[in-house]
């Protein structure tokens, strides 16, 4: 009996040490794995701020955000009306214009065609008063919705928030 107890304790000690060692080795792998995650200077580019005070009605700007192009359009009354008009029609990817903007006059889009990722041309180049993707001829309207061509979905609206009346922050801070 005594010998058996001794034997058990020995086994337990060795097992426990082995477990602690395996746990430690696994933990040691973490810094190596983590070193592949985006670095602090890359994360600092998670958000982009744009000042819209100089953006006149009818104009648009393209700004880089996380290495991708963002269109910000200061829409005219006519362009807004065009977008609202299409709300009731049949759309390939149905969405209401009011759900795609925070302030009616400012349209913010991630400008990568949902077909194969080209950058569409500026507003007014497409058939519906909107954007034409030159690669394969997708037409987006003044709300950035797909209307004609091979692209399956509307141009996505990135996460953004207005800091004040004229400053928009695109992206969520990490």
């Amino acid at each position: 009996m005594v010998i058996e107890a001794e034997e058990n304790r020995r086994d337990f000690l060795i097992l426990a040490t082995g477990a602690v060692g395996v746990a430690g080795t696994a933990a040691a792998a973490w810094p190596f794995i983590r070193s592949w995650s985006p670095t602090a200077d890359v994360l600092a580019q998670a958000t982009t701020e744009a000042d819209l005070s100089a953006l006149a009605e009818g104009q648009m700007i393209t700004i880089p955000w996380q290495g991708k192009p963002i269109f910000i359009v200061h829409r005219s009354a006519e362009q807004i009306a065009q977008a609202k008009e299409a709300d009731s029609g049949s759309l390939p990817d149905p969405a209401l214009d009011k759900d795609r903007v925070q302030k009616e006059q400012y349209l913010v889009l991630l400008a990568l065609c949902t077909h194969l990722g080209c950058v569409p041309q500026p507003i007014g180049t497409g058939d519906f008063g909107g954007f034409l993707c030159p690669c394969h001829g997708s037409h987006y309207d003044t709300s950035g919705r797909i209307r004609k061509g091979p692209a399956p979905k509307n141009l996505p609206v990135p996460y953004y928030a207005f800091k004040d009346d004229h400053t928009v922050v695109i992206g969520k801070p990490v």
Partner: peptide, 8 residues
């Protein structure tokens, strides 16, 4: 861990 290893 090293104390454990020493015991083992």
């Amino acid at each position: 861990f090293t104390i454990m290893l020493y015991a083992v």
